[in-house]
Amino acid sequence: MKGRGRDAFSRFRPVLRMMEKLLGLAPKPLQKWMWTLSDLLPDLPGTALRYCLLRNLAHRCGDNVLIGRSVELRYPERLSIGSNVSIHKQCYVDAYGGLTIEDEVSIAHQTSIVSFQHTWSDESLPIRDNPVTGAAISIGRDVWIGCGCRILSGVSIGSRSVIAAGAVVTKPVPSGMLAVGVPARVVKSIGRAAKESATIGNGPRMISHEPYTQHYQ
């Protein structure tokens, strides 16, 4: 498809690789400081700088990764991210407990992904000062996460699933499903099997997903 951002990545890949190597010579704290300053740059230079920095800071980073303005990234060394991924502006991504994002994932603006949670067992301390525990998050291939979602620690989202805008995901989402609500629950299949089932007989019909519905109650 012409005009897509990944075409620009392809055209300028040699320049980006050279920029990545030069930035890799800087200390990690300086690179993280430059990440913050990248918001002051125009769109394309800022996107290029964040991508090159991510290639150095992340545990693994693929090709054609777009990071929007004002994305806060914590513990990038515990983040593995695939190719053709977009994380749009004002997202909060904390990989403390480990975070894997596979290829072809799109994460809309103002979404939070938090791979840790606070404990509160030590009553001699305020809850905010109690230790935190991490639990890895896994986001499969070709997942679309709508704006303003909250993906909480220990969650896995199966491939080719959609998380509706505003959903709070606290439990695993199987592959090929649409999850909505607070807390998020699976409401229907969006896979090929669902389309085939819906056209059997005299016309469209409702599709039952009782096993998944019961799992999320």
Results as ranks from 00 to 15, higher is better:
Ser161Val: 01
Val169Leu: 09
Gly98Ser: 05
Ser156Gln: 05
Gly46Met: 04
Leu73Thr: 09
His118Ser: 14
Val182Ile: 13
His88Ala: 12
Phe116Gly: 08
Asp103Ser: 12
Val186His: 02
Arg60Met: 12
Ala135Arg: 10
Gln31Arg: 15
Ala48Glu: 10
Val114Tyr: 05
Gly134Thr: 03
Ile157Tyr: 00
Lys89Trp: 13
Leu49Glu: 01
Val15Phe: 11
Asp103Phe: 12
Ala165Gly: 03
Ile67Tyr: 07
Ile81Phe: 01
Leu73Cys: 09
Leu66Pro: 00
Ala194Phe: 02
Val162Ala: 01
Val173Leu: 02
Arg185Phe: 02
Gly146Ser: 02
Trp33Cys: 13
Tyr212Ile: 11
Glu210Met: 09
Gly158Trp: 00
Gln31Thr: 07
Leu79His: 05
Met18Ile: 14
Gly5Pro: 07
Asn130Gly: 13
Ser153Glu: 05
Pro42Cys: 04
Gln110His: 13
Gly166Leu: 03
Arg128Thr: 15
Leu152Glu: 02
Val182Pro: 01
Leu22Arg: 03
Ser138Ile: 09
Asp43Ile: 14
Gly68Met: 06
Ala8Gly: 04
Leu99Gly: 02
Arg13Cys: 04
Ser138Met: 08
Thr36Lys: 13
Gln90Phe: 14
Gly166Val: 04
Arg128Lys: 15
Phe12Cys: 05
His215Leu: 14
Leu23Ser: 02
Cys91Pro: 05
Leu53Glu: 07
His109Cys: 11
Ile137Pro: 00
Arg160Gly: 06
Ser156Glu: 04
Ala8Val: 13
Gly146Glu: 03
Leu30Tyr: 10
Arg50Cys: 13
Ser38Asp: 01
Ala58Trp: 06
Arg128Pro: 08
Ala95Ile: 12
Ser121Gln: 14
Arg185Gln: 11
Leu99Ser: 06
Glu104Arg: 14
Arg160Phe: 00
Thr133Tyr: 10
Glu123Asn: 13
Ser38Ala: 15
Arg185Ala: 10
Arg69Val: 08
Gln31Phe: 08
Ser161Lys: 00
Asp63Tyr: 02
Thr47Met: 15
Pro183Ser: 07
Val114Pro: 00
Ala167Trp: 03
Cys149Gln: 01
Leu152Asn: 01
Ile127Trp: 05
Val173Pro: 01
Ser138Arg: 13
Pro172Ile: 08
Ala26Phe: 12
Leu16Met: 13
Arg74Phe: 15
Ser10Leu: 12
Ala135Asp: 09
Asp7Arg: 09
Gly181Ser: 06
Leu54Val: 07
Leu125Asn: 14
Trp120Lys: 09
Glu20Leu: 05
His59Gln: 15
Asn130Tyr: 07
Arg141Pro: 01
Tyr96Gly: 12
Leu54Ile: 09
Pro76Leu: 07
Phe12Gln: 02
Ala194Trp: 01
Ile87Ser: 01
Asp142His: 03
Gln214Ile: 08
Ala164Thr: 05
Cys149Gly: 05
Arg6Gln: 14
Met206Asn: 09
Val85Asp: 02
Val93Met: 11
Cys91Trp: 04
Arg69Ile: 07
Thr36Ala: 13
Thr111Asn: 07
Val186Arg: 03
Asn130Ile: 12
Lys21Thr: 11
Tyr75Ala: 15
Arg160Ser: 12
Pro29His: 11
Trp35Ser: 08
Arg11Ile: 04
Val132Tyr: 10
Pro29Thr: 10
Trp144His: 04
Tyr96Cys: 11
Pro204Gln: 12
Ser10Lys: 10
Tyr92Phe: 15
Met1Asn: 10
Ala164Gln: 03
Gln31Gly: 07
Ile163Leu: 09
Leu37Gly: 09
